[in-house]
Amino acid sequence: MVETNNILDIRNLHKDFYIKGQRREVLAGVDLTVKQGEIVAIVGASGCGKSTLLKLITTLEDITSGEILLDGDPVNGPSPKCSMIFQEARLFPWLSVKQNIEFVIPDSVPKAEKEKMVEHYVELVGLSEFMNAVPNQLSGGMQQRVSIARALATRPQLLLLDEPFGALDAFTRMNMQQELLRIWKEDNTTMVIVTHDIDEAIFLSNRVVVMGKNPGVVRSIVPVNLPFPRDRTDSAFLEIRGNIMREFLDS
């Protein structure tokens, strides 16, 4: 096997859905690699298959043809190397913040260590005071932080985020984007974030993957070589934004 530092390697990926017996091609030959420590954003109009792509990586959906390699190995069932964050926090409403995170840590981990991990990640997302609160007592943004802590607590090498801030208001969203960058710097987890917000994609990522639809393909990959933290009103930022916008308008 060739030694690479690619965490994720997607090769000629196809996915078809059948709706009332009619074949619908959702992904038509997607190729994408993600390097260790990178943040890659995937943008595209709804229906371009960007969420399906993440579902295929986590095996929530099955591949029609093609290959997904996670840290060099083909995916075959949900991998401990990758965690997924959904648009909704998807916490268990009957469990406290602490219990929600504990829930996903394998039972083979000793109790003392489990507790330490939970504490660490709750602190990382800034919710130490709310350890014993239940999800319904938290705001949407706080719930999503718990969901991030939960995802990180399994120590994945790859974090997949499916429109993670899409359900939050604009101010909370900006705040969460900054938080995510801070967490990324501290934890250094590779991230793939699906979004329909171009600003968000540029603000967060090293590369922006632009997808086209019918069928879903990677149209272009735009590198974002700007230092963090990024200024949304900076001219270089706006130029990249313009380039990506043009990709959409051209189609």
Binding site: P78, F92, W94, F103, V104
Partner: peptide, 24 residues
């Protein structure tokens, strides 16, 4: 079903999924 998907991605076994997610 969204919670069942969470359990799936975190490799929670069937027994735990049943008694710790479905029952509650």
């Amino acid at each position: 079903n969204k919670l069942i998907e969470v359990a799936y991605t975190y490799r929670i076994n069937k027994l735990k999924t049943t008694f710790k997610i479905i029952v509650p």
